[in-house]
Amino acid sequence: MFRNNYDNDSVTFSPQGRIFQVEYAAEAVKQGSVVVGLTSKTHAVLVAIKRNAEELSSYQKKLFEVDEHVGLAIAGLTSDARVLSNFMKQQCLSQRLTYDRPMPIETLVSMIGDKAQLNTQHYGKRPYGVGLLIAGVDETGPHLFEFQPSGMTQEMVACAIGARSQMARTYLEKNADNFNDCGREELIRHGLRALKETLVQDRELTVDNTSVGVVGFKETGKKALEFFKVHDGAEVKEWINSVEEDADAGGETAAEEGGAAAEGMQVDE
């Protein structure tokens, strides 16, 4: 039987120049349920599907507040995500203590990028088995960053990671041009529609399995913040209903988008 000799640790390259442990970690991200993030001129939004391990168990949390101006969504190992989330929380607190300012999002993201990279270059360490979407607002506006276990980070207009996230990405790519000028509500609805694309046949968004996180400016051009807040349960009902309605109303467009998504699927494979 084939046995891969180059995946015992993350310090050894394969002859093809690959580090298998890091690639396996990236697979762990794809096992996690899907999360979607997107930004406009004024807001950054995260939406997520929560999973429950069994019928009687509670739903696993997907969105976390880091500081008043930053939040994150996770796909992969929740326990690893908590380590990163705690770290980011501490960094944000200390930034406020030493400089009396909110942590710039880019700086925060590069910190976890560096932290994750260390795990890919030290013997006996394991890469984080989680991918993150970090949404936040700072003096340069709303931002969305993607983080991968390799330590890769990049700023995105919109992004989706986790199981079947390709479907959501296809939706986001198709509508990306509209996001910038979206209002808060419209941006959330785009997020939920992208999320819906990833659902298997008989599944749908419910108040139990959907989380929405929003952060942004209260008014355009103003510095007053709408703090990052995670909305669960009854709070997301209206939004879910509103995306269901437009699916019923525009049957044709829905079918069209479904077609595009199917194409996307094939590309993925």
Partner: peptide, 20 residues
Amino acid sequence: YTSEAGHTLNGRNLHKYLSK
């Protein structure tokens, strides 16, 4: 160097840092 654009320490940030 740490951030590409837009972030500079303003007077308040600088004062907080120095007092610390």
